[in-house]
Computed example of a mutant assay.
Amino acid sequence: MAGGRFLLVTILNVVITVFELLGGLLSGSLSLLSDAFHNLGDALSVILSYVAHRIGARRQTRKNTFGYRRVEILTALLNAGVLILISAGLAFEAVRRLLHPEPVKGDIMLVVAVVSFVANLLSTILLNRGSKHNLNIRATYLHLLSDALASIGVIIGAVLITFWHISWVDPLITILVAVYIVFESWPIVKQTFGILMEGAPQLDYDAIAQDICALPKIKGVHHLHAWQIDENNLVFSVHVNMDDLPLSQVEPVYRQIEALLCHKYNVNHVTIQAECHRGKDEALFFKQNDWRHD
């Protein structure tokens, strides 16, 4: 992801934030003020995303042998979590406005919303390409996309307020946008939390075991572990039972297993432990008390 695009998106979001804050105060529009705070969060999100992306690109070290890619996962979780908290606060204020309506100047609201939509749309386009294969950038992209959609809602609300004086539509739009943001952010929270907890990726482990056992010289598979460094890097370890063979004959089997896992299951870091009789009757997945018998 080019640093120039991150910088441009950050500048756009800062400008939009100031513009919407002024517009929201002048018009009395809650949806504009909520969008302004949302854009401020976006600007911070873009900065965090860029810093995390640079850190995540560093090479492995003796201290961090898997590298620094988890920094991007932490940032994605932070961004999505902040979005949910902001949305909850905005929804609470919107409910209060529904119960106690306040006057809104629709003409000012409309002009500010149109300008904000154009700027948000441009920011979204700038980050779209990098959002498909990176959770960190995807979380930031969702920040910007939700703002663009919020601006559409604000535009519709401004039209209704300007021409039909329906003031309650302003907090209603705020609630709808807040619900949408939570709906889009929650999957990122779940996925990043799962990665940080070293949850197993969604693979067909029974099929993997069958494929490995189908290879020549493999007698059994046990103590399988799989986890993710980030959404694109899968780590896999497994114990395999083989005949009592010299190491020179075991290594080609290792290469076959690695090729199978890489090409069929997109696993890119494999650790294999060959055993003759040890563990042959144990389960595919490691049980907490198995180590006592090893």
Rank of each mutant, 00 (worst) to 15 (best):
Met1Gln: 09
Gly3His: 07
Leu12Lys: 07
Val15Pro: 06
Ile16Ala: 14
Ile16Pro: 00
Thr17Met: 15
Leu21Lys: 04
Leu21Gln: 06
Ser31Lys: 12
Ile47Leu: 13
Val51Ala: 10
Val51Met: 10
His53Thr: 13
His53Trp: 08
Gln60Thr: 11
Thr61Val: 03
Tyr68Arg: 03
Val71Trp: 03
Val71His: 05
Ser87Val: 03
Ser87His: 04
Ala91Gly: 11
Ala94Leu: 12
Arg96Tyr: 10
His100Arg: 04
Pro101Met: 00
Pro103Arg: 10
Gly106Leu: 02
Ile108Ala: 00
Val115Pro: 10
Val118Cys: 14
Val118Arg: 08
Ala119Trp: 09
Leu122Val: 14
Ile125His: 10
Leu127Gln: 08
Asn128Ser: 15
Gly130Thr: 02
Gly130Pro: 01
His133Asp: 14
Thr140Gly: 13
Leu145His: 10
Asp147Ser: 12
Asp147Arg: 11
Gly153Phe: 07
Val159His: 11
Val159Ala: 12
Ile161Gly: 00
Phe163Val: 03
Phe163Glu: 00
Trp164Lys: 01
His165Gln: 04
His165Asn: 01
Trp168Thr: 01
Asp170Cys: 04
Pro171His: 04
Ile173Glu: 00
Val177His: 14
Val179Glu: 03
Ile181Leu: 08
Val182Cys: 12
Phe183Asn: 08
Trp186His: 02
Lys190Asn: 00
Lys190Val: 04
Phe193Tyr: 03
Glu198Asn: 09
Leu203Trp: 08
Tyr205Ala: 05
Ile208Tyr: 10
Ala209Met: 10
Asp211His: 10
Lys217Ser: 13
Lys219Tyr: 09
His225Ile: 14
Gln228Asn: 08
Gln228Tyr: 05
Ile229Arg: 03
Asp230Lys: 06
Asp230His: 06
Val240Arg: 08
Pro252Tyr: 09
Tyr254Arg: 15
Tyr254Gly: 14
Gln256Gly: 13
Ala259Asp: 13
Asn266Ala: 09
Thr271Asp: 11
Ile272His: 02
Gly279Pro: 00
Asp281Gly: 02
Glu282Asp: 07
Phe286Leu: 08
Asn289Val: 06
Asp290Tyr: 00
Asp290Ile: 00
